[in-house]
Amino acid sequence: MGTATGIIRALNSGIKHIATKRFTLRYPEEKLKFVGDGYQFDPSTGVGIAGLKGRHMLFHDHCTGCQLCSIACEGVAEAIAMVKVPEEQKQNKKSIMPQIDYGKCVFCGLCVDACPFYALYMTNDYELSSFSKEGLIYTPAQLQVKPYVAQDSEIQISDRGATHG
């Protein structure tokens, strides 16, 4: 008898879920909403400000070319290289700025923690695919651009199940 009731319970649960709202996100059309603008670091308190660890954004006017981000990356992914920037973009004395290879980056955010001048942020742009390896290397000029991300889906919990509304 236990077997029969168990089987009926399982079937019942299955049929019930046919009427439950589906949970899946239709990804390219809908995108998840994240906290804040992205991961930042506040050197004064020593803790980060929560946010998505996506692609970096570099504020050229804050960057001093101190290479701390590159050093921080050394043991992790070696994705950051300091490159010469053209004279017209020059913001610091050495005129070097980080260039990030997203083929290597692991998005740990240690470079953001290392930057003492609020120059590196991480944004919530994570769609970084490219057809070539070179396309994944972001120069300082590319890193300067603030990405446009339209993300609005949030998990909604209702009586008929959770959805990405």
Partner: peptide, 17 residues
């Protein structure tokens, strides 16, 4: 800020509040 590889714990606490 990350979905799977958090790298959140560090000696001395956690990375962010």
């Amino acid at each position: 800020g990350a979905r799977v590889t958090h790298a959140h714990f560090v000696p001395g606490g956690v990375r962010n509040d």
